[in-house]
Amino acid sequence: MMLKPPGREPDFDPNATPPDPPIHYAEQALLSALLLEPHRREAIGPLGPEHFSRPLHGAVFAAIVALTPPAPAIHAREPVWLASILSHAGPTTPALTPSYLHTLIACTSMPEHAAEYAGMIRADHARRSVRVHAELLIQAACDPTLPDPAAVALARADTLTALIDNLSSRFSPHPGSLPRTPSAGSPGRDTDEETTSEEQVLLSTVTARPGSLPTMRWLQAEDFAVPVHRRLFRCLTSLAHRGAPVDQVTVLWEAQRQGIFTEAITARDVLEMLATPAGSAHHWGEQVLRRSLLHSAHTAGLRIQAYAEDRTNTPHQLITGSRRALAELTAVRVRWHRATSPTPATPPRSRAPATARTGPRTPGTVPATARASR
């Protein structure tokens, strides 16, 4: 069953492209089954050209679903089906040649397993889709040139969450739903000069004006990038929680009680950290929390990326691991929303209509309002 070669040769040999096992062979097996027995396409479930890892395979599949197969008798004796597919996909897909269609047909496959091959393709497409969106989340969390990195990162996290929810409706759960991938861990925090300076200003401002602490319950010690700053913030919150006075000296005493002082961190060092109050504590707290939010987004993206790159994970394991990683980001996001959402104005209290004050009535008299209503 030979086809007339096209007028031009492809720029490259598709067989020379390193395959991506095992999905490469699953795609070949499915296309082989549909080329040999076109009626199998009715039983493979929802599948589109975009699900294929190679554009060449997607183009062949697009032609298969777009064209009407020939009658079985004609298909058995003439290469009408292959010629139609080549004519449909060839003009836009230079890599598609008659020889590659024959290569697909020659692939060892069982046409009756077409539905299983299609399931493999859907599963690998889900893995690739999650990986792409995880990479976009990482990019947003690490790009300082964005006008509002936090808003972009949260928008991409929403898109990734929607994808995970959509995939969960397509792939059924099974025992052993946790990913087998070792945790990617948390990336190191950025402790550059700007970050260190803003955290120190926040600690100084809160120490000088401790009344701001009750209004900043959305900020936690873990949000600080510099370890000693986290411990000093715990000192501040501990004093405030006990109702103890807060100033440089009481913070210094609490720092001693919590074992902060070492050869590298002395009492004088701590006093210097607390000596530069400026501006609004709420403003500096938002800066610290924003960095913590981006760090959480970066961490979630790296973990989901690791799950998606591990081919041993099933779609359900990928879904479960991704949801856990996004849940940790959501916890920080809730606090970010509390910090940045404007406080709703308190509606004015409704007052009861004023009642005319009248002096004591003498027996037998009737109030003026009652006389007017008669």
Rank of each mutant, 00 (worst) to 15 (best):
P6Q: 08
N15V: 11
T17E: 12
P22E: 05
I23N: 02
H24Y: 11
Q28F: 00
A33L: 02
L35F: 03
E37R: 15
H39A: 15
H39P: 01
A43D: 12
P46L: 10
P49I: 00
H51E: 05
F52E: 07
R54C: 05
L56D: 03
A59G: 15
A62R: 13
V65F: 06
A66N: 10
P69Y: 05
P70Q: 07
P72Q: 12
P72Y: 12
I74L: 15
H75I: 02
L82K: 11
G90S: 07
G90W: 05
P91S: 10
T92K: 13
T92F: 06
T93R: 05
A95V: 11
T97D: 00
S99E: 15
A106R: 13
S109P: 06
E112N: 08
E116A: 14
Y117S: 11
A118S: 10
A118Y: 02
A123E: 14
A123H: 06
D124V: 07
S129C: 07
R131D: 14
R131S: 12
H133V: 02
A134E: 05
C142E: 05
D143E: 09
P149D: 00
A155P: 00
T159H: 09
T161W: 08
A162I: 02
N166R: 15
S169N: 05
S169A: 14
S172Q: 14
S172F: 04
P173Q: 06
H174C: 05
G176T: 12
S177E: 13
R180F: 06
G185Y: 11
P187W: 08
R189V: 11
T191Y: 00
E193L: 15
S197H: 10
S197A: 08
L203V: 11
P210N: 11
P210F: 09
T215S: 12
R217P: 02
W218P: 03
W218E: 08
L219I: 13
A221D: 15
A221S: 15
D223N: 14
F224A: 10
P227G: 09
L239R: 13
P245L: 01
L252I: 04
E254W: 02
Q256L: 03
R257I: 00
R257S: 02
T262E: 07
E263H: 12
T266M: 03
A267Y: 00
V270Q: 00
E272C: 02
E272I: 10
A275W: 07
H283S: 08
L289Q: 11
H295G: 01
L302H: 13
R303N: 12
I304N: 03
Q305V: 01
R311I: 11
T312K: 09
T312C: 05
T312P: 00
T314N: 08
T314W: 12
P315T: 09
Q317G: 11
T320E: 12
A325E: 07
L329Y: 03
A339D: 03
A345C: 02
P348T: 10
A352G: 06
T355Y: 04
P360D: 07
P363N: 07
T365C: 08
P367Q: 04
T369V: 09
A372S: 14
A372W: 12
R374N: 09
